[in-house]
Design a binder for these strands. Structure first.
Lengths: 400, 400
DNA sequence: AGCCGTTTTGAAAGCGCTTTCATTTTTGCA
DNA sequence: TGCAAAAATGAAAGCGCTTTCAAAACGGCT
């Protein structure tokens, strides 16, 4: 075991700009005659571990708080105090510290800070699918709310499966998040109740007794959406339901039924098809309705994505929306107002929900209390719904 | 300054379940007669700092690696070795350690690990807008690729503005990410070249000499999209361009022009309108084309979202797609196949791009080399394009 | 039994920052 | 001018983990 000096001067593929900026560094190696590429590996590993960084063209050690302290001629404690404003520091020294920070391009190591303070300044967010436009809006809300705070969100997806959701939670907790925001999902409430003993947990879109929950009234929303159709004269209204394993889907179905009841319309199970909240299932739902000869003049879908799918199915058959069949969605995704025809839908304020959830979490973290704004659904009437043309007349589409 | 004992037994708003699980703990306080709520705050703060956690109904210290070591009757080093598999450990002790971990419900503190190892096991991803369906796909790809690895992505958005993008980069670097994936954007290349001296950086959707880039051929894609229209007999093809500050938008415009040239069609600047990649701008673009009496039988939009907007504008005017005007987009967002009419578009493999970017980053982190799969665009012909009905005839829509 | 080369282990020194506690300096006032 | 109180500072002990280095245990020989 000797201390050897490794000269690095070659150029590995993806790092052409490294050429010329590496210089001879000391490394501990097991033997002489190290092949060049392993020498590079050592160099690279050191860099990665932040033992060194290439800066201004030459290799130097990463700058730490003590470096700043030395440079400014004060103790590390003082530097810490200046940075965090946790105690008064004489203006003179403060200036010196700030100048040193500037000069050395110092950036605090947030991991070290986290370790010392026992918190990570990170908030875990569990969504079902990060690429879904619905969660996209919520995440954007979270991101915005956290923007000016020292906290940063980190995401993990549950893919609408309780086990994966649980895994996502585990990952986030393992990453030492300071708090959790759980969006929808079907993970057992007990698990969350267990978690909340350790850190603040806010639930969005579900109601779990004992936890701060932020939800909309799905029953009411679905009721309004369906009522809108009834008011337009529709009586045979199909419902494309969400997966009945999800509470919100159940509630929306319930709202649909209540509206029917209020409108004096008998509930017909044959007009309800269960989907999975994704576009294809909306398409399939309409196909299956048509296939079994169901008669309807309007569709209320439990979310916009399924409404999109339904619309395609209708389009394929030459059934026009809204002239022949009216269509109502739920969510009001950003793209729904640019759908053709622009979709009438029950607006769910995704962005605001994300925002409020984040604000609430922040408040809990700081021990403040916070009453989130009321988040209610709102019917947005666009162009996918129309008065029933000839009330009482049978649906205008042929059954195959 | 006395050591006092604080009894906590009341119930602050959002934590009903805390009632009964708090018990008397020791805390250091400045004075006697502490009001109950500040007592709670202390308790809460301690919990947050993981000094304690409520577990099994009673307060206990958070379990650390040394606890496991003690429980298993070995040294911390050995526990570490068992957990990380970094060295051989006698089967007997290994078992003991594993049992102790099990028994104590031990979870390693990833922050401490990160600090000690000089890395965070975190990969920073800069997108333009987290809620955009296009980035959603890429993020999903990144998430998937990182799933079985110890790494986890963290996101920050640049909102299509160089300054915010730079801020996003700063945030991520400040969070000690081990590597960066930068998606599109317009942050100066030099900044990234500076960053790559510190950590691996992979760029998606842009080409910056000196950096590993993962991009598609925008020129070729746009060329194919436009050519498709030409092959259908269209000669007056409008283009809704992306923001010309973005390289990809420029390239797509170029592809459009090349296709025209190859088709022997003169380029008409009056048929090009610049948008901002969002739906409203697509709508505006068509409005403005119509307003100034431009004649066209087809539209090639630089992305799907603008195509959506264009489609609405056409729909409003009673101009039918594809009977009156053909429409081609770019991206192939998940929702485009459920658009009405299903959108013909140039597919950009968002998910794969995210995936490959993440794989590449992993390879760089591990010092391996990796050649990403070739990511090319592909024209997806759906139902928004059709043969020009009466070639040579003027556009079928009235100019207001 | 004694010796040597492996394997296994544990002690201890960090990683970069915070925070307590004691010490030094400054200030206000007699 | 001197003294007590207040303000400012620094030394040092962690935070929970890794990793080096040296010591201990082991196994196979002679």
């Amino acid at each position: 075991m000797h201390k050897l000096t490794v000269g690095v001067g070659f150029q590995p593929a993806p790092y052409p700009q490294m050429l010329g900026s590496c210089r001879t560094i000391g490394g501990r190696l097991g033997e002489k005659g190290i092949p060049l590429d392993s020498a590079f590996k050592i160099c690279f590993t050191l860099m990665q571990q932040r033992k060194f960084s290439l800066f201004g063209g030459k290799l130097r050690e990463a700058v730490t708080l003590s470096d700043v302290a030395r440079e400014a001629g004060v103790s590390p404690s003082t530097v810490s105090r200046v940075i965090n404003g946790t105690a008064r520091v004489k203006p003179g020294k403060r200036e010196a510290v700030l100048r040193a920070i500037e000069r050395l391009h110092y950036h605090p190591n947030i991991l070290a800070k986290g370790l010392a303070q026992g918190r990570s300044l990170t908030i875990g967010v569990v969504t079902q699918e990060i690429s879904s436009p619905y969660y996209g809006e919520m995440l954007k809300g979270v991101e915005q709310a956290l923007e000016k705070t020292p906290y940063h969100p980190i995401f993990a997806s549950g893919h609408w499966r309780a086990d994966q959701e649980e895994a996502a939670l585990k990952v986030l907790v393992g990453r030492q998040v300071d708090a959790l925001v759980v969006m929808d999902g079907s993970v057992p409430g007990e698990l969350l109740l267990e978690l909340v003993k350790t850190m603040p947990v806010v639930v969005v879109g579900r109601n779990i007794p004992g936890l701060p929950c932020l939800g909309i009234d799905n029953v009411q929303g679905a009721l309004e959406g369906t009522r809108h159709l009834i008011e337009l004269g529709h009586r045979r209204i199909a419902h494309i339901a969400g997966p009945q394993s999800h509470p919100d889907a159940i509630e929306r179905l319930q709202g649909y039924r209540e509206a029917l009841q209020q409108g004096g319309i008998a509930f017909d199970p044959a007009l309800v098809v269960e989907g999975d909240y994704l576009e294809p299932s909306g398409l399939m739902a309409v196909e299956s309705l048509l296939a079994r000869g169901a008669l309807f003049t309007a569709i209320f879908a439990a979310n916009d994505q399924m409404a999109y799918g339904a619309n395609v199915a209708l389009y394929r058959r030459g059934i026009r929306v809204p002239q022949d069949v009216s269509l109502v969605g739920f969510d009001d995704l950003p793209s729904s107002s640019y759908f053709t025809p622009p979709l009438t839908t029950v607006r769910q304020p995704g962005l605001e929900m994300g925002w409020e959830a984040a604000r609430l979490v922040l408040a809990l973290l700081e021990g403040r209390s916070y009453t989130p704004r009321n988040l209610s659904t709102r019917l947005v009437v666009r162009e996918s719904t129309a008065l029933l043309r000839s009330p009482g007349v049978r649906v205008p589409h042929a059954v195959p």
